[in-house]
């Protein structure tokens, strides 16, 4: 079958069909525009987000480090969920090893 012809079952046009080609170009343009929009600021936004996340980590683990936190009752159940991020977080804060006795990760 020639590329671009509809199949006997009336399926989607083949890869060579002008409409498919147009859609391909359109999607490529969309991807390029998205990349053009995102890439210069990807790093700055990721760092800003990480700073917010780090602050959040501090909230969650504040009580364990001796900083009174009235929201501990609520943040306690988040601790297991944030366990995976804990190691990277304390390293980013300049602490080579885990500052918490009961919370060893390295």
């Amino acid at each position: 079958m020639k590329p671009g012809r509809r199949t006997a079952t009336g399926g989607a046009p083949g890869c060579g069909h002008p409409m498919v080609k147009e859609a391909g170009r359109f999607n490529r343009l969309k991807r390029l525009l998205e990349e053009y929009y995102v890439s210069p600021y990807r790093g700055a936004l990721a760092r800003a987000r990480r700073e917010e996340d780090d602050l959040f980590m501090l909230f969650v683990f504040a009580e364990l480090m001796g900083v009174p936190n009235p929201a501990t009752y609520y943040t306690l159940e988040l601790q297991p969920l944030l366990l995976e991020r804990f190691h990277e977080w304390h390293r980013r804060q300049g602490l080579e090893h885990s500052p918490l006795d009961g919370f060893r990760c390295c």
């Binding site: 390029l32 990349e35 053009y36 890439s39 990807r42 790093g43 760092r47």
Partner: peptide, 19 residues
């Protein structure tokens, strides 16, 4: 995948040019 990420050269050219 944040700061260091291979990017399409057309996009990079667009950035350099417009910056």
């Amino acid at each position: 995948d944040i700061d260091y990420i291979p990017t399409n050269r057309l996009v990079l050219w667009g950035h350099h040019f417009t910056a």
